[in-house]
């Protein structure tokens, strides 16, 4: 299954990746190869196989509703490119912020 250059362009935009024309070319080819490889699976007869929502045959993993200590604020903010010791700071969000 091939993927078009336009589709790759759209996906890169949604992923906030800025690709040059050359990169777009490479990515289109590589993604096409990956999809083609996965496409091999469609040759299998899966009529008698139950669909599954998860790779593990496990369900109902819960934890109790107990509060645990959170990160110290300084620690939480430590890796942010920009913060003011209380909040993360990001380029202005306009519209419905």
């Amino acid at each position: 299954m091939a993927i078009s250059r336009e589709e790759v362009k759209k996906v890169s935009l949604l992923a906030r990746l800025q690709l040059s024309d050359a990169e777009l070319e490479t990515m289109t080819a590589q993604l096409g190869d990956i999809l083609g490889y996965v496409e091999l699976l469609s040759e299998l007869d899966t009529d008698k196989v139950e669909p599954m929502a998860h790779a593990l045959d496990v369900s109902n993993v819960f934890r109790d509703d107990k509060v645990r200590a959170s990160l110290d604020r300084g620690e939480a903010l430590a890796n942010a490119p920009k913060h003011d010791d209380e909040c993360y700071r990001v380029p202005a969000v306009l519209g419905d912020g």
């Binding site: 934890r63 107990k66 509060v67 645990r68 959170s70 990160l71 604020r73 209380e86 909040c87 993360y88």
Partner: peptide, 27 residues
């Protein structure tokens, strides 16, 4: 109205100082 968040143990209390109820899971 749970005491803790949906997928981690941070408190859901309203009105605490900013960014004091987070952990590696929810951030």
């Amino acid at each position: 109205s749970t005491a803790s968040k949906l997928f981690c143990g941070c408190s859901t209390a309203f009105g605490s100082p900013a960014n004091t109820q987070t952990c590696p899971v929810c951030i």
